[in-house]
Design a protein around this nucleic acid. Structure first.
Length: 482
RNA sequence: UCCUCCUUAGCUCAGUUGGUUAGAGCACAUCACUGUUAAUGAUGGGGUCCUCCGUUCAAGUCGGAGAGGGGGAGCCA
């Protein structure tokens, strides 16, 4: 058997001195021709391997270079040095894979995130990305645990869809038809009846509509999968391929929905704080270093851990859209004409408005409800008793400091007549959506749901400012490497 | 897509009013040293100054176009 090794995380936490161990990993640094800092990705901490002088051949020592992979057999001993409590005194050193020191791009020094983004296949071997992607894993696991504990069914909604009414953005076309000389129908349009599915298909922009079908049988479901948007968005918080969690619950109104979303976000953060304390502390320290380089007015004034604990230990602020507009209109910021965009009832809140509410006014996550119907999707439930011209829907957005919108959700319109009226008004063909409308025809119930952008959640927990740094291989406009 | 900034050694960057052979730190190689903590010391190699066009006696430096990247905006999660 080849693999009888001990992982470095376990070795450092619970192995008595005197134990003989097998350790494998990649060389981070090799100091003084004697001390190897070895890392296996289980933790950012390295194990120091001691290759005592004179015990190993020069030809072996020469091959211990940054990035090389090693198999070490040795004994755990108390360290004579100061940087670590234990180290491994090597008996044998086997080079598993060489790494040409002249060509290996990662050096034992600080690299820019932009440079590492271009080396996405190797950046996992850095401390920063080690912490980020261990946290990504932990959060994904916590998502399933949270919903499983509450009896939700994990529903796999399709990635290829023929529905183009999801209404969430530009879609990627899926086809087997040739780009050149695609078959045309009598009207001269591309003849999708000859395509693989016999109709035009796209990559999904949301699993919500299918999720609702599941909720109408299992009561509570969630989806967690990749989602695709062909928007030409070049920002630090948009990806063309991203992961989204979309719970959908029967017998929930908008308030139940908000409660679940808040509980969910806090659960994820708590899970990370508890299970990945080392990674959060590492990123916290890293962020503190970055902050020092910023001018005073641009500093957040919060440490990462401090920010996360603040979120977990306080209730999210809950306000209506109308109250949000009033707060903005009464702000000094508005009176000094510092908003670039107009503020009045009916506008969609701009980034600057959301930032003001979250970062200046409340200084914590904010849930905004009751948006104007005119700026929201067809499936959101019309609020009763609105003044004419001021119709609102039971929508809710959760805004997070530094990220902006992290959750978007609503109570869904369960009343068939109202839903059809809304779809007609928005020119959505009812016949294409009869499968969706069936849920309202046969045993409709009040229900609600939301979508949480997984990468934005990871951004919030890791403090990484660019979304491209929290997904292993980012897909963005003009960029699809690997 | 719009606004804005950037592109010089493997990395991070400096480069004067346009001037002759383009620099530093780190990395890398060789040697020395040996309980180091991104080891240290000495020596050395390493450049399509993003690309193209233009202005000029002369362009890393000035102008135009293009490509790539960062930040911001819109769209949203």
């Amino acid at each position: 058997m080849f693999n009888q090794r001990i992982k470095i995380k376990q070795l450092l936490s619970a192995t008595p001195t005197g134990t003989e161990v097998v350790v494998m990993g990649w060389v981070r640094t090799f100091r003084n021709n004697q001390f190897i800092a070895l890392n296996d990705g289980s933790t950012n901490a390295n194990i120091q391997i001691v290759a005592s002088l004179g015990e190993f051949e020069d030809v072996i020592l020469k091959r211990i270079t940054t990035g090389a992979s090693l198999k070490i057999i040795g004994t755990v001993v108390e360290s004579l040095g100061k940087g670590q409590s234990v180290e491994v005194k090597a008996k044998t050193i086997e080079i598993l894979g060489d790494s040409d020191a002249e060509k290996f791009p990662l050096q034992p020094k600080k690299h820019s995130l932009e440079f590492l983004r271009e080396k996405a296949h190797l950046r996992f071997r850095t401390n920063t990305f080690g912490s980020v992607f261990r946290l990504r894993h932990a959060l994904a696991f916590a998502v399933h645990q949270f919903y499983n504990e509450r009896g939700f069914v994990y529903l796999h909604t399709p990635i290829i869809t023929s529905s183009d009414a999801e209404g969430a953005g530009e879609m990627f076309r899926v086809t087997t038809l040739p780009l050149e000389g695609a078959p045309k129908n009598e009207q001269g349009e591309i003849d999708y009846t000859q395509d693989f599915f016999g109709k035009g298909t796209n990559l999904t922009v949301s699993g919500q509509l299918e999720g609702e079908l599941g909720a109408m049988a299992f009561s509570e479901i969630y989806t967690f999968g990749p989602t695709f948007r062909a928007e030409n968005s070049n920002t630090t918080r948009h990806l063309a391929e991203f992961w989204m969690i979309e719970p959908e619950m029967a017998f929930y109104d908008i308030e139940d929905n908000m409660n679940l979303a808040e509980e969910f976000i806090k659960y994820l953060i708590n899970y990370a704080l508890k299970n990945n304390a080392d990674d959060i502390d590492f990123l916290d320290a890293r962020l503190a270093e970055e902050e020092k380089l910023l001018p005073t007015e641009k500093r957040s004034g919060f440490g990462l851990r401090e920010k996360l604990e603040l979120v977990v230990n306080n209730n999210f602020e809950r306000i209506t859209y109308t109250e949000a507009i009033d707060i903005l209109l009464n702000s000094n910021h508005y009176k000094k004409k510092k908003f670039q965009y107009e503020v009045k009832w009916g506008i969609d809140l701009q980034s600057e408005h959301e930032r003001y509410l979250v970062e200046q006014h409340f200084k914590k996550p904010v849930i905004v409800t009751g948006y104007p119907a005119a700026i929201k999707a067809f499936y959101m439930r019309m609020n009763d008793g609105c003044a004419p011209g001021k119709e609102t829907v039971a929508a809710m957005d959760i805004l997070a400091p530094g990220i902006g919108e992290i959750v978007g959700g609503s109570q869904r319109e369960e009343r068939l007549d109202k839903l059809e009226a809304r779809m007609n008004a928005m020119h959505i063909p009812l016949e294409d959506m009869s499968w969706y409308l069936d849920t309202r025809r046969f045993g409709t119930v009040p229900h609600a749901g939301f979508g949480l952008g997984f990468e934005r959640m990871i951004q919030f927990v890791t403090g990484m400012t660019n979304i491209r740094d929290v997904i292993p291989f980012a897909r963005t406009p003009k960029n699809c490497e690997y």
